[in-house]
Design a protein around this nucleic acid. Structure first.
Lengths: 245, 245
DNA sequence: AAGAAAATTTTTATCGATAAAATGAGGCAT
DNA sequence: ATGCCTCATTTTATCGATAAAAATTTTCTT
């Protein structure tokens, strides 16, 4: 229950520490969706000052993890079925395109990296930490690393950046799901694993169309996966209404 | 030359004002690429406090307009030919997909909005302000509004958000170009206008494939357009190197 | 006169205090 | 009770000051 574990990412400035810490606590579900983030409370939890904390929070806004309402502070971004669908729908064209680019531009160094990332992902359960919370966090990292490595050769900083943001947003849902299902089991879903393997193989073989079709299925089924495990509101507050335009 | 015009976006909090003001000055080229943004100077230019300014700057980081280096402050994001290519390359899959979605989901209300936005864009020169700087800024708004309206019916807040970010980043290049070429003329390029018209028509007619192919050409030629007008470094500093992954 | 070291000036990052705004709790008339 | 107003409390947003870190200039040594 202690939200701010003092495993502070030190060396960096306090603002960076604050942003990293808060981001991690949001991704991991430590800070619940919708929860208010009062600076006073945060100052006590973390040993950071109020000013750096505000700034750290500000930096997380356009990463979609934090919401700021003028005059009434910060809060954790909400979650909903529709929101997860939106994340995956946005990932789809970006990641499909980045994958195609990566396959066409990737050299042997990239191929080696993909093989390595896949290996770490497949064998994760064997070297994961015992603590289930830490294990889940570690899995996220390995899983994210795999997908990012796969597209890393696309040579587009922006696509990689956007994808990074979308992964971070998506991982919250996995954690919410994991909190009900037995962790160990979920971590090594044979179906998903097979997809990861196929994805890596096709990519390395230069089979763009095949790789893309696996990726598409992989992304399209994710929403279902998560929500058959846990019930969640279909819609939530005003996050998704039209005033965005 | 006075960077901080006091036409402050008031009502909102100082942080919001700061972010809006700085964003505008960066987009318009008022703040040059690479230029250092010292808070002390900004405090004098704008009538805002140091704390809100820092926070405002922080919020612009993940929008790609500002860069922060731990311990040595903020600076305006660099520009380069490669960077503009990256912006357009990232826009391509996102906007193509959003367009297809919008066409399939758009109702008559959306169609009306598209017609309206197109009309404002085509007739802009006739009602644009006399001051060339203001005129260029106004054109950006109308142009951005057209493209956003076109995809607005896609029902994906994230795609719209990402596209918004990419437009903002791209507009800097248009302004850099405009600073050498005679403004009036560039604003009503018949070639681009024809493309905008075709785009709108196909979209409204439900001709997804046609609309997409026009959009693709429209995006792919933009980089060339800009750089044949003004010379620019092919690459710049370390913005595009591989350490992003 | 060149280069290293020291001293000075800027500039950044952070703190603690405070005004302004929002929230919540009683009290009071209907 | 129900709705409305006032007052107390919490919380936010902002300021001014300061320690720490960088950049710049000066001084010293050879």
């Amino acid at each position: 229950m202690t939200a701010g574990d003092d495993t502070a990412i030190d060396g960096a400035t306090q603002v960076a520490q604050a942003a990293a810490l808060i981001a991690r606590n949001i991704r991991s579900g430590q800070y619940a969706p919708g929860q208010k983030l009062k600076i006073r409370t945060l100052v006590e939890e973390t040993k950071l000052g109020a000013t750096p904390l505000r700034e750290g929070l500000s930096r997380l806004i356009s990463r979609g993890l934090v919401r700021a309402t003028d005059g009434r502070g910060f809060s954790v971004a909400e979650v909903s079925r529709g929101d997860l669908d939106d994340i995956m729908r946005t990932r789809l064209p970006l990641e499909m395109d980045a994958l195609a680019l990566a396959i066409s531009k990737g050299n042997s160094h990239w191929q080696a990296a993909v093989v390595g990332a896949l290996h770490r992902l497949m064998t994760y359960t064997s070297w994961a930490p015992d603590d289930p919370y830490e294990a889940a966090l570690g899995f996220d990292e390995v899983h994210k690393a795999f997908h990012l490595t796969l597209v890393s050769a696309c040579e587009s900083p922006r696509m990689l950046d956007f994808l990074d943001i979308l992964y971070d947003q998506g991982f919250r849902y996995r954690h919410l799901m994991l909190s009900t299902v037995e962790p160990r089991k979920r971590l090594s879903d044979p179906q998903r694993n097979a997809e990861h393997e196929a994805l890596a193989r096709h990519a390395i073989d230069g089979e763009t169309a095949l790789a893309q079709s696996v990726l598409r299925r992989h992304l399209e089924t994710f929403s279902e996966e998560v929500f058959k495990a846990r019930n969640m509101p279909e819609r939530v507050k005003s996050t998704l209404t039209a005033e965005t335009v």
